[in-house]
């Protein structure tokens, strides 16, 4: 015989919409995240299919057509809708290819930093004591250096290039994840489900990464969404300083750097278009991150957009 109270409760659980369904409703209600997703889809599409959709070879120079203005501005060349740079290269094509580097660097560095930081944070929080002390003191030492300074120092030693850039930016991020993962793990490690796993004979690694980790992931996912934006900005800053990727690889930050000498000469399009690309992408990621935070944190649900 079934207890009626229990059967009602089960019925209510069955009717509760799935996470995806709730996410869809939330997105539609908020609107701005939808715009952000649209922007990011365009950027991702450019990154994935750059060679197919790019109207020109981004590195093809045409000195005679250098500094051609965009649109219908006097002196514009219809072959180059966004104009050309100081070497006569198509700015539109370079923007499209630049999306690749920005996304590649942003996502990979966050994955590297996130995995490293989360693992160390969970270990520190779970074991506590000396292990915790060692890991967190290393984190403190790294935090004592300004991030961009540390990155510049390492890149000067290792040399510029995409792999080194990704590595440096990734390693530069781990502390944030480690501190959050540690705090969350400390709050979880004495809970009943952890005790249950322990009493069933699960070893430390299984408890940490099978039992605790899924319960501490939500804030880490939110942080990582913001971090992607900050890493894209860091890549742009380092490329602007000449420490990012080689000048032949089109990047948004590199394009900005090349525009420096032309700003006083009134060649605004060299800076404005990569600037807009960086701004829109970072803004979109931040909007999405905000929404994700609200969505995953029940206390904030309904607030925000």
């Amino acid at each position: 015989m079934v207890n009626p109270a229990i059967s009602i409760s089960l019925k209510q659980d069955v009717r509760r919409p799935s996470v995806w369904r709730r996410a869809r409703f939330s997105l539609i209600r908020a609107k701005w995240p939808l715009v952000a997703i649209a922007i990011l889809l365009v950027v991702t599409f450019c990154a994935a299919f750059g060679p197919l959709i790019s109207p020109k070879d981004p590195n093809r120079q045409n000195l005679v057509l250098r500094l051609a203005p965009p649109f219908q501005v006097e002196g514009a060349n219809p072959e180059f809708p966004l104009g050309t740079d100081g070497l006569g290269r198509d700015i539109l094509s370079r923007l499209i290819y630049g999306a690749r580097v920005s996304l590649l660097v942003g996502l990979t560095a966050v994955v590297i930093g996130g995995m490293l930081g989360t693992s160390l944070g969970v270990v520190a929080g779970y074991f506590g004591g000396r292990v915790d002390d060692i890991i967190m003191r290393i984190a403190d030492v790294q935090l004592a250096f300004p991030f961009i300074l540390l990155t510049i120092m390492v890149l000067v030693v290792l040399g510029p290039g995409i792999p080194n850039l990704v590595l440096v930016l990734g390693i530069g991020q781990w502390v944030t994840y480690a501190r959050i993962a540690r705090g969350q793990t400390i709050s979880q490690r004495e809970k009943e489900y952890v005790e249950a796993a322990r009493s069933m004979g699960a070893n430390h690694w299984r408890i940490m990464f099978r039992s605790i980790l899924p319960n501490v992931l939500a804030p880490l996912i939110i942080i990582s969404s913001f971090n992607v934006a900050s890493v894209i900005l860091s890549e742009a800053s380092l490329s602007f300083l000449g420490l990012g990727v080689p000048p032949t690889v089109p990047t948004w930050g590199g394009m900005l750097a090349e525009s420096r000498d032309q700003l006083l000469a009134g060649k605004w399009w060299l800076a404005v278009f990569p600037g807009i690309a960086i701004m829109m992408t970072v803004l979109a990621i931040n909007i999405l991150g905000d929404w994700l935070r609200d969505f995953l944190d029940p206390r904030l649900r309904g607030a925000g957009f």
Partner: peptide, 21 residues
Amino acid sequence: NVVQAIAQYLTDIGVQTTVDI
């Protein structure tokens, strides 16, 4: 920029030139 332009001219005649600036 001059270095990159030279590399382009050399690449155009089949001497694939990578720049290291």
